[in-house]
């Protein structure tokens, strides 16, 4: 009987160890998904800003005075020379000259692509978080059971000692 008790407790401990390892992996996964989502959000904010800027410029005439941001909330005065020549970044440090329409199309496609990826990461994150919660519950349950088992063993030992 006591052999059975000790073997079930050891298998529970084994389960606990396995769950702890799994939890660590899942937490790492959640962290990595979170940081990817943050990166995507930053990229989406930038692309939406570029899209809005191009949308606004579309309505302007050449030679319209504009203020170009130079960072730190500062601007320099300039004139819109050619609104239909947009330098569009295609990644890997390369940019191409495109018409405003082409550039807007490219940006919209990238926004759609990134939003799709973001939705998929968010879905994965939800699943990982659910799994983390389930593992934590199970871990708690096992810890309680082991604690109760150890308590009962102590009581039996104490009872034998008084006989």
């Amino acid at each position: 009987m006591s052999k059975r008790n000790s073997s079930s407790s050891s298998s529970e401990e084994e389960d606990m160890r396995r769950l702890a390892v799994e939890l660590r992996l899942l937490e790492g996964m959640a962290e990595s998904l979170n940081s990817r989502i943050n990166l995507l959000n930053a990229a989406l904010t930038e692309l939406n800003l570029a899209n809005r800027t191009l949308e606004g410029l579309e309505k302007e005439e050449p030679d319209t005075p504009i203020f170009v941001p130079i960072g730190g909330g500062s601007y320099i005065k300039a004139k819109l020379e050619a609104k239909d020549e947009v330098i569009y970044g295609i990644g890997a440090g390369v940019a191409m000259e495109k018409t405003l329409k082409e550039a807007r199309e490219g940006i919209s496609n990238r926004i759609a692509e990134l939003s799709k990826t973001k939705t998929s990461y968010e879905q994965q994150l939800r699943q990982v978080l659910q799994r983390i919660q389930a593992d934590r519950d199970r871990l708690q349950e096992l810890a309680d059971r082991i604690r109760r088992g150890a308590g009962a063993r102590d009581v039996r030992k104490a009872a034998r000692g008084t006989e």
């Binding site: 330098i87 295609i90 990644g91 890997a92 440090g93 390369v94 940019a95 191409m96 000259e97």
Partner: peptide, 22 residues
Amino acid sequence: IEIDQALSELEKASDDAVIYKS
């Protein structure tokens, strides 16, 4: 992935397209 995307964009562009490198 970024290099592949840039290469595929370049492939679609005409030979005299204006290209810039950062």
